[in-house]
Each structure stands twice: as C-alpha cells, then as structure tokens.
Design a protein around this nucleic acid. Structure first.
Lengths: 195, 195
DNA sequence: AACAAATCTTGGCATATGACAAGAAGTGCT
DNA sequence: AGCACTTCTTGTCATATGCCAAGATTTGTT
C-alpha cells in the first residue's frame, strides 16, 4: 500500500487537478531509483525510453564537442524533470551524457507507462504536457539568452531561477552552461559581490 | 490520380525504403500550400498542429526577446522541414513566429494524418523519425556552437551546410541566427573573401 | 594531521565582437 | 528616370570575454 499523502510525487502533482484516487493509480507507475555520484543516467549513443523526477540531488547533461570541450547542456536539481526528448519520443540514440553530480534519489517512469497514462488520464496529460513544455521552453530560452544577453545577466537569471543549483554545482559546470569560462564566471561573481 | 513519380515529395521520401505503393497512400495526405512573402505560417501564441516541407522558397522563425531584439531562431530552405515541436507534439502555444521570407511552395501535413501514418506504416515511421530527429539535433548543435565556436566558424559551417540560405537570406537575419550583429558578419565575410 | 588533487580567485594581456554613425550599394515603387 | 527605403560596408572606439599562469582555498584520502 502506497502512502500517497506523504509521497514526494505528491509535490510534483500538487495543484494539477489530479484527484487523490487518480494519484493512487499514477504513483505506483513511478519507480524510485538512486544514483551515486558520477553514475550515468544516460550515455551518448544510448536510447533511454524513460525519464525522471529528481527528489534530491543534482544532475547535469553534457556533451563533448568536436574540439574536446566539455560543455554542460543542462543542470537539474530537486523537482526538475530529467529527459532527453529525442531519445524519449523519437527513439533516437542520445547525443548527450546525463550524469549525477551528487547522490540522487529519483522517480523513474517508462515511456510505455507514460504513454498509457497520457492517453487515458486527462488530468495527467494536462499536467505532464505543461511540465514537459516548460522544460523544453526553458532550454529554448537559454539558447536565445546566449545570443541576446550578457554573461552577467545569464548568471543572475540562473541565480534567481535556480539558486540551489548555483549553490551546489561546481563553478566550471555552471560556467560552460552559461557559455563562458570559469575565469570569467569567477570575475562576474566578484563583481556582483561588490554591488 | 496523383502522378507520384514526378512529385516533389518523391525527393523527400527517396531512398527511405518506402515502397511506391505506400507512397501512393502517403503522398495524398500532404496538401500543397503557398505563402506570399511575409506571410506567417505560425505566430507566437498560436497552436499549429501541422508541419511543412518546403518545395521552394525561404522561411525563418524568430522571437522578439525581452529587450525587443528580433532574433532569428532558425532558417529554412528547400527540402527542409518546418516544425515547432512544442506546438506539434504538446499542443503548446508557440513561442516563435514563423514567417515566409520569399514566396514559398510547401507541403503540409496535419498532426492527425502524421500520427495515423506514423503508427501504421513502418517505413514512414522510420523515415520521419530520422528526419525529425535530424532537425531537432541540428538546433541542439547550433546551440552548442554558440558556446563553443567563434562566429566565423559558425558562419563557415552554415555556408557549407546551407549555402542556398546564405545566398538568399538577408545578412541581418543570418547574423542574429549566428548570434552576432550584422556589422560583425559583414566583417567576417570581408575577411573570408580576402583568404 | 598531512599531503595530493581539485576548485576557485586573481593578474596581465590579447582579441572577438558590439555600439554608433556615415556612406555606398541595391531594391522597389510611382 | 528618380526617389525613398532597405541592406550592406566601413571606420573608430569601447568592452566583454578568453587565454595563460600563479596563488589561494577547499576537499578528499591515507
């Protein structure tokens, strides 16, 4: 018997219009998994037809570009959804590596279970749709921000939106995510501290 | 009766393992549409559950960022697929505007027809999957390139991959797509011409 | 506790790119 | 043909950010 009331996933599904009785069908489809620091959730070349909600811990996705640079593509913390859209929805081998930066507790759902609930439970569909769209748009906005904003603005934006990530992820990973060097980010921090 | 042999879509589906008899079912699902210069295929806020193949003409997608800058998000030419993933697959209002830069002839398919063929015709599924994944990854690579490469490299890459776009799209749109000003792009061109 | 390794900060200098403004070239319209 | 409008080029100067290398600080390990 699942104690849904106190379950982490309740926070994820809170205020989504999903009823308690629906939740009792939904939550058991999620499997708790843990990752140790440096474990890979997904490696380049793999197809991973599942995704995760992070209950605790930090995760990053990265690619190694043609010149050998390690570039952080995304950073994830508690309550974030970790997903590779191409792998999940198009069955494509991933272009990125997704790795735990710390010990992590996550809730995993398979493509099949997702699809089934997406097609049969209206409130689940609406809630997940909103969530996935939000995560997709965040990436898109970040990409635009690389063009339109200065590094300092990007940093301040990240600090505002995801302070827990700024506080827990190493400077070099944050720097490549923001599209700058760790040296520059260090200077930006110094400048902000002065203000 | 559709004359599939000489049909533009034959080029799209060529060497995809789709048989001629399957093509005769597939091609009629596509509707030819034309756009005049400056027509919108999709506007910010709309949900557009369809996508297009360009037979001729040029199209761009763009957003106006918070500071009012017009930023080209993607550029499309003949044989490209024009799609807003969030709108198409998640029924989300688009964040971008998709506008014809020239007169265009396109082939449009609805989400419903796409879904139906995707689920029933294996060869269609494989071909479309490859195509959509390719288009998705190109955007991802471009985003990484904004971080990892110099403007000149990005321009040379675009020139190599999509010379027809470089030749037909105005410098200012190419510039914002590459993440630089039109002034800088003009200088980069000059420098390349000298070599 | 002590050392090694990783992370972060700082300095000095180089450079890619931006901002602004003027002129040149190209395009479309009457 | 002529005019307005947009697009492209070029000059000058400012600046954000990169590169490299040296310390400082923190973290992990024995």
């Amino acid at each position: 018997m699942i104690e849904t009331k106190s379950h982490f996933l309740n926070e994820i599904f809170a205020s989504s219009g999903i009823t308690q009785s629906e939740l009792e069908n939904i939550i058991p489809k999620y499997k708790q998994v843990t990752f140790k620091k440096n474990d890979y959730l997904l490696q380049q070349g793999q197809v991973e037809k599942k995704y995760w909600f992070i209950e605790s811990g930090f995760i990053r996705s990265y690619i190694i570009d043609t010149e050998g640079n390690d570039i952080t593509f995304n950073l994830y913390g508690a309550k974030d959804v970790v997903i590779d859209y191409a792998s999940m929805f198009f069955f494509a081998p991933s272009k990125e590596n997704v790795q735990a930066l710390t010990e992590c507790t996550c809730w995993e759902i398979s493509y099949e279970d997702f699809q089934e609930m997406f097609n049969t439970i209206n409130s689940f569909r609406e809630q997940q749709r909103g969530l996935l769209v939000g995560s997709y748009f965040a990436l898109k906005e970040h990409s635009i921000s690389l063009i339109a904003n200065q590094a300092k603005e990007r940093y301040l934006h990240l600090l505002k939106e995801k302070p827990h990530i700024v506080q827990n992820v190493s400077l070099k990973h944050i720097a490549t995510f923001l599209g700058i060097t760790d040296t520059s980010l260090s200077r930006i921090r110094k400048e902000i501290a002065k203000e």
